[in-house]
Design a protein around this nucleic acid. Structure first.
Lengths: 202, 202
DNA sequence: CGTTCGTTTGAGAAACCTCAAGGTCTGTGG
DNA sequence: CCACAGACCTTGAGGTTTCTCAAACGAACG
């Protein structure tokens, strides 16, 4: 959908399915920057920049509406509030990346996993998918490894440990929260960076 | 200047000096998200969100001009291109955070350090400070540790090793590149995410 | 019925951390 | 001028986390 280094890319709004954005390193390693779920903007940075600085990939079959760069810029002239709204969306995106940065920089593997699953759950809940008991998740352990800066082997051990501790069970594409608040306590998860109730439109 | 959790914060444009934005964890650990140098926007996210999701701190004596949220939003109505420019600035900001994320997730301590110093050098050069031989830098090893997700002790060892390898010398507030291209090769540094030559204004 | 993809487990190694102790430099008050 | 405090840097020793390599297992699929 979006390829790092290519020019004149489009942005999309994801209507159905999951995708992820990532950066690939020269040695073949990759870092997943964010996961997109229905309702999310996809590739906004790649239209503002001449060349895309990241890649995107579908994780499931997806439905998305293309958003042309020209349409966005034109709309700013007609509806300034829309500019504020788009800026807000970009900022919320950045806030999530920042939280992921904190995750990688200052939390242990288990805290990272707990935090990641809780963020996903919260975001999915906002668009009406899943609940506090769990959610369906198409990510493999390899995806989790690339997102959390871990090896796939270690991801497996971390998941086993969280399961044995009675906190969360991630098997066969389903995340089941066995102790939601235990997970929150473990990870130090705080929804402030997600719970913004929309752009300030005066 | 900006405090996580507080409301109705202002944004600034840094005219002189250095600052950094960071997030503090419950256990006292902190993660530096980004360093701001002259010319950088500071706290844009904290005016779009009702409450600031991060804190900022001055690293030197600084001079900055306050930018009122209302002024920004009002200007969108009068000059739609300004909206595009601000959105572009926010996106460049995000691109840097993304690159830091890759740094923490997929690079070794030495590559992180090399990448970080090269990014700083490149950004400083863009505003006319420092050159390929080095630059003055007010960051302590504690700051580097908080930025790179390492312990201060390990930062010290990494710096020593890079110095012994003849790559870079960071002492007494000055970074001296002993082998600029060796550092670039080590870190896999690529300026694409910084070199955007300004917003696309048609 | 073999292949592929994802998961699971073990064993040993590497990277990084914590604790602890000194060292250097700078500013400050006596 | 000297003693002292505080901030920062440096080094050692030992411990923990996470990685790599290797092997095997199960489910899905042609």
């Amino acid at each position: 959908m979006i390829h790092e280094g290519e020019r004149n890319q489009s942005a999309f709004i994801l209507a159905e399915g999951w995708a992820c954005s990532f950066k690939q390193l020269a040695d073949g390693e990759r870092q997943i920057v964010d996961v997109q779920i229905p309702g999310d903007f996809l590739g906004l940075r790649s239209i503002l920049f001449r060349t895309a600085d990241h890649s995107s990939e579908a994780l499931t079959r997806i439905e998305a509406s293309e958003v042309l760069a020209a349409d966005i810029f034109d709309s700013f002239a007609e509806a300034p509030r829309l500019a504020t709204a788009v800026l807000w969306a970009a900022s919320r995106d950045e806030a999530m990346v920042v939280e992921h940065l904190v995750n990688l920089g200052r939390r242990s593997a288990e805290m990272r996993m707990a935090h990641f699953l809780l963020e996903l759950s919260t975001r999915l809940h906002l668009v009406g998918i899943g609940d506090r008991t769990g959610f369906d998740c198409p990510l493999t352990q390899f995806h989790l490894a690339d997102a959390l800066g871990l090896s796939a082997v270690h991801v497996n051990r971390v998941l086993r440990h969280l399961r044995e501790e009675g906190l969360v069970t991630f098997q066969k594409g389903h995340v089941a929260f066995d102790d939601f608040f235990g997970l929150v306590a473990l990870s130090g998860f705080n929804t402030d960076y997600l719970d913004q109730d929309g752009p300030l439109l005066r």
